[in-house]
Write a protein that binds this DNA or RNA. Sequence first.
DNA 1: AATAATTTTGGGAGCGCTCCCAAGTAAGCG
DNA 2: CGCTTACTTGGGAGCGCTCCCAAAATTATT
Lengths: 341, 341
Amino acid sequence: MADLTLEDIAKQAGVSRSTVSRVVNDLPNVSPDVRKRVLDVIQKTDFHPNAAARTLASQRSWTIALVLPHSVSSFFTDPYFPHLIKGIAQGCNQYNYTLALFLVGTKEDEDMMFPRVARKGLVDGVIVQAGHHGDQAIVGRLVNSKIPLVVAGRPFHPNDVSYIDVNNIEAAQNAVRHLIKLGRKRIATIEGPWNSTVSIDRKEGYLKALAENGWSVNDTLITVGDFTEEGGYTAMQQLLPQNPDAVFAASDAMAIGAMRAVREAGLRVPEDIAFVGFDDLPISAYTPVKLTTVHQPVVQFGVTAVEMLIDLIENGTFPPRRVIVDTELIVRESCGASLTK
Amino acid sequence: MADLTLEDIAKQAGVSRSTVSRVVNDLPNVSPDVRKRVLDVIQKTDFHPNAAARTLASQRSWTIALVLPHSVSSFFTDPYFPHLIKGIAQGCNQYNYTLALFLVGTKEDEDMMFPRVARKGLVDGVIVQAGHHGDQAIVGRLVNSKIPLVVAGRPFHPNDVSYIDVNNIEAAQNAVRHLIKLGRKRIATIEGPWNSTVSIDRKEGYLKALAENGWSVNDTLITVGDFTEEGGYTAMQQLLPQNPDAVFAASDAMAIGAMRAVREAGLRVPEDIAFVGFDDLPISAYTPVKLTTVHQPVVQFGVTAVEMLIDLIENGTFPPRRVIVDTELIVRESCGASLTK
DNA sequence: AATAATTTTGGGAGCGCTCCCAAGTAAGCG
DNA sequence: CGCTTACTTGGGAGCGCTCCCAAAATTATT
C-alpha cells in the first residue's frame, strides 16, 4: 500500500536489493526458485519500481517526446494528427516507452518545450512533425541539441537528420498516371502552398507523370490552393475556363471544394471532369461523388517512426536513417474508372 | 556542451551546490549579486537541471498523464479530442507541467499504462476522459490507486471523484427551449446511445424543456442514434412518419445525417423541420443549411481540467472538486430563427 | 561596542534505483 | 577428490538533485 522500494521487497523475499533489481529487469543469472520467490512478493505487494530513480541511475527515461507544431489549424480537422498520435502511442506501448506530448503553438511554447526535451533525464529521444517551412526553426534547434531525433515528414534541410516520409512523389505520379490511363488529356492540378515539402513533392509527381508520357506542361492548368475546401473551390474557379478534363488535387479537402465549384458550374464529375485527391479523409467515401484518392498508412507510419527513434537511441544517431513509406491509390467514383468499363 | 550538474555550475560561479539550487528554483534568501553571478553562468553554459534527479529528490515529477480510452473511432473524426488535447497541453505549458499521453485501445494497453501512471516518480496526477460506460473499469482502477485524478466528463459513479463536465442538461434544455420559442410544436429528439452520460444528460435536458412548458412526452418523437451521421439518417427515417416540426439531435453528426434524410424525403429545413445539433463541428457552419448547434468551450475545458488537477496535487484530493462548464447556443439557419423575423 | 536577531551560505544525508566487483556456491573434469 | 570454471548473490558507490541544519556573514538593537 505504502511506497515500497526494492529494499523492502528484498527484505520480504529474504534476498538482496540487487537480486530484486535483476528480477524486476528480467536479467539472467537468477536461480529459478529465487526468481519465483521475489516475483511472488512483487505480485503480492503490487510493487512498481520508482521511475525517477531508475532513470537517474540508468540514464534512460524510457520516454520519448512527440513535438507537434500546430500553428496550422488543420490540427483540429485533419485526421492525420490523431492517426499519427495513435501510431506513435501504439509504437510506444509496443516497446515499453512512455509518450510525452508537446504541442507547440507559439514561440513561448517552443521556449518552454525546448529545455524539457533537450535536458537529460526527461526524454530519450524526440519525434517532431515537420515538413512545413515554419517548423524549420524547431527542427534546427533539436538537431543542434544532439538528442536522438526523427522527423516525421521530409524537412527542408534533410542533411544529417533522420526522417520518415510518405512517398509523395510516387503517389502523385501514380494518381496522375491513373488519370492518363483513363484517357484524360487535359489534366490540371491544384497544388498546396509553396511552404511545405508535401506540396513540392506532390507537384513533382504530377510533373513526372506528364513527362514520362512526353507531355509538355501547361502552366494554365496548374493552380495553387492552401489545402482547404475553400482554397480548392477558388482554385477550381480559375481552372474552369481552361477546360480541364481531369484534376489532381494535392489534398482531399481541396478536391472536395473543387468538385463543389464544378457542380455549381453545371458540369459533371467524373464525366466532364475527373478527380483524384490525396489523404483519404473519412468523408471522401461519402461525398456526393465518392472521391478517388491516395491513402497513406498513417498509423503504421507512426509506429515505424518510433522504431526508427529507438534504433537511434540504442545504436547512435549516425548515420542518419531514412524511411520512405508507400501509399495506396483508392479508386472510387470521381476518377471515372467505372465509366470505361 | 557536455552534461553539466549543479556542482559544475557551483564551481564556475564560486558558490555551493545549494546556492545554485536556490537560484534554479527561484527561492529567496540569495543575495542579488550572487544570484546574478549564478544566473550568468547558467545562461552561458546553457545548463538545465536533470529532471530525473530533481524528481527523485523532490518526489514531484511535474508531469501529468492524460488517459484517452479511444475504443470509439470518433477519436479520429471528432475534433473534440484535438481540442481537449490542446487545452490540456496549454494548461500544462502555463503551469510548467509536462504532458504524458496514454492512448488506451485494448486491455493490454490498459495493463501497460496502469503501472506507469500509478507508480511513483512518473506522473503527479492523471486526467482521464470518461463518460462512456466502457471507461468505468479504468476510472475505477485509477480511483483505487489514490493518485490525484480528474475525470473529464461525468463518470457513471461520480462519488468521491473529482470531475469536470459540460453542462449538458442545461445546454440541451436551452436548445429545445429555443425551438419552442420559435413556435415549434412537435419537437423530436435523436438521442445518443444509452452507454454514455452525455446522452443521458442531453436527453434529460430535452425532457426538462418540455416539462417546464407543461408539455407531455410523446415517446414516438424520441429515437436513438449512435452519434454518427449514418445513425442520424436512420433515426430520422423512423421519425419522419410522426411528422415532427423540429428535431433536437444530441450531436451535429446525427443532425447532419438526419437533415440528409429530410432532404431526401422532399422536405425543407428549416421550413418544414427545424434542427438544432450539439458539438459545433467545423463542418456545421458549411452544411447546405447551416446548422444551429451547441458550442462547447473544449479548449478552456482542458485548461480548467489541468487547473483542477494541480489543485488536487497541491492541496490533497479531498474533498472531490466539481466543475460544470457552460455552453453557448450558436444560432444559424437550421433552427429557422431567421424565418420569423 | 557588544550582543542579539536576521539573512546568506555550505555541506551532509538521502531520494530509490543500476552497475560493478568481489565473495560465495555449484558444477565440470582429469 | 582437488582443482578449475561457471553461475549466483550481496553490498558499495554513485546517478544529480532537494532539504535540512549549522556555520558564517550581515544587519539591527541596546
